[in-house]
Amino acid sequence: MTPLLEARDLAVHYPAPGGAVVRAVNGVDLALMPGETLGLVGESGCGKSTLGRAMLRLEPPAGGRLLAFGHDITDARPAGLKALRRRTSMIFQDPHASLDPRMTVGESIAEPLRVHRVGDRAHRAARVAELLARVGLTPDVARRRPHAFSGGQLQRVGIARALALDPDVVVADEPVSALDVSVQAGVVNLLMDLQAERGLAYLFVAHDLKVVELISHRVAVMYLGRVVELASAERLFAGPKHPYTRALLAAAPTPDPRRRDDPPALGGEPPSPLDPPSGCAFHPRCPIAEARCRVETPALRVDRGGHRVACHLVSLDEPVTRPPARGAGIAGVDG
């Protein structure tokens, strides 16, 4: 099967003050397959949002190749990106910031159709009504402007806009992290339902591991511009191999009062991408780092089950036990 989007040794650089270069994405191999949700997780500054945008060629590649629907688009000119723009879309974290406050939400949803010259005015209006209904809003809200909506409603508008051209790929950048928990659940469910109906593929960029676990088929963990672990969601969450992934899972607070006062899983903070540590970028925070970790950058290795990990010190085929942080739930909430 041809991946919808594929990064091969992709790099994205930003200029920094003083002529320095921030390697925001530093040699990433990643493929998004049809119909799947690929979760992309990591802490701020790890490059996950940049990688999400770069996969749509919204950031110019500084190195490596980028393929869309089987075609190399690394050096494509805007005209050559037309298919990419038509078949992909994005959902953003803050719909109040991503939707034009001067346009009605109906105009915002119809905009991609207008830009790609799909249908006439009447056709587009009908499509807007249909999309609004599908995301759980009434068609009459099309005439309102963004300020009249709550965060959850407006994120549904953002989803309707992303669906306007019936894309194959949606890159969702922290789509529910600004929403209240009771509203978030409804939006996550909507995204899952839409995928089931339309066979969309999602590149789902998020820091909330529980949401990622629920929605993703595969998950990539990033640290300082690199993918350090990549596996099916089941494998990754049941048996994380990279010491960083293990710490990340343990640090996510489980709503269980009986796990209170566990010591923090990890000291230190993510390093600055302006001044990345030598060797394995995680070594200054790693509980098992050895001398070679300070010198050699580990490559992504793969085990028999397709579980990829970039660490010198984990053995690939030894079974990894489920860490204690996982699997604790709240008793009695169903009662």
Partner: peptide
């Protein structure tokens, strides 16, 4: 609210989250 927290409770039988 407690049930809507991802990972806090078993998901719905259809694999979706409990929402309010």
């Amino acid at each position: 609210l407690l049930r809507a927290v991802p990972g806090a409770a078993a998901p719905r039988p259809d694999g979706r989250l409990w929402s309010i």
